[in-house]
Nucleic acid binder design. Sequence first.
DNA 1: GACAAACACGAGAGATCGCTCGCGTTTCTC
DNA 2: GAGAAACGCGAGCGATCTCTCGTGTTTGTC
Lengths: 212, 212
Amino acid sequence: MPDNPQTQKEQPRRRQARGERRIAQLLEAAARVFCTTGYTAASTNAIAREAGVSPGTLYQFFPNKEAIAIELGDRLVHELRETYGEALAPVDPATPLEEAIGSTIDRFMAFNTEHPVFFALMHGPDIPGRMAETHDQLHATLIGRTEDLLTTLMPGATRADVTRTAHVCFGIYKSGLELVLAHEGTERAAYVQEIKNVMVRYLRPLVGDRLG
Amino acid sequence: MPDNPQTQKEQPRRRQARGERRIAQLLEAAARVFCTTGYTAASTNAIAREAGVSPGTLYQFFPNKEAIAIELGDRLVHELRETYGEALAPVDPATPLEEAIGSTIDRFMAFNTEHPVFFALMHGPDIPGRMAETHDQLHATLIGRTEDLLTTLMPGATRADVTRTAHVCFGIYKSGLELVLAHEGTERAAYVQEIKNVMVRYLRPLVGDRLG
DNA sequence: GACAAACACGAGAGATCGCTCGCGTTTCTC
DNA sequence: GAGAAACGCGAGCGATCTCTCGTGTTTGTC
């Protein structure tokens, strides 16, 4: 099956090394601008200026503003899945609850503090259309993994209970992330520990005497 | 000290009953539009259309778009302080922890579900300048009250510990509110109960054997 | 070195939005 | 009922933002 114009949209463009560099440069600039001003308030001219190029050059590589956020989001999601995909894998039932929750939170906190634009793009109320799809897809995946973990730990719970608990865990993490990103150094570390405490104390009665 | 033009900015405008009605009408319309699209994306023309008046009429009562959000926010904050001000008052030490937390969360949830625009205005990343002041002021007040409550319950903790705990409680409530607003009926009630569980289990070890 | 394609520029077209202004209507006051 | 002031309208001004286009430069291929 050769190139199908139906599915193979259009890519007669052969990028040069210079072009790839510009793309990376523009995405880094966009990440900085999105972080400080949010998606909607970020102007394409500002992104181009931040990258040190002209508006026309920006549109040589991205068809529109939304595509910049989408490409940035896709690359981040890809890195998240690649590097931290095993963070929600099934845990050894012998693992203490503190340790299981602690290492999971540490992994995700590390990613989010290293890429603060991820939170800005996924959490902002002004995300573009296809970006919302990517977000919903990732969200569903993470909720699903959490549900799987919780199902083995909450034998007596209904499906709705498990789903609700997973959403509450996710909410706890998100609010904790907001606090963590707002602080630095030892205070930040203290907030990470507090979020672990919240999660452990919330889940301990649900899982009964399992997991330590 | 008669009218001082320095502090008494300018109000030679004597509102008629019709005008007061229009203002209320416009604020209700603005609340609906802000709720669905957020502050920045909400156009003044859309607010006027939602209220069934012309753009010119809107600007007869509000000097600019920011003033609409500020007036709306001020009225909500005023109602919050009036009606729910005692929600964070000092509690009787004999009150069980579950009951103290439960009634407080119920009060605030009632207000927030009755005025969903409040969350949209206070939480959005695109709030206007003076709106942020109102928000920070209210936030500081609520955090301060929470700190006062926690101080009496955490005798051995440092000031920084108390502050951090108060922020964590606030974050738990906010993330819970987001979940509550996203659901209806019995599922909403179940989420309210879950948030109470999270809060109680988080605070129980901190307060020791006090409060039941 | 010649040709094509990718890259780069920046002025500005086109669209949107906040807000104004001139004028007509309703309400209040006497 | 007459004058003033508040209310109401909607076309459109000016600012801003996304995105285009004509032109010039750099890079890859033969």
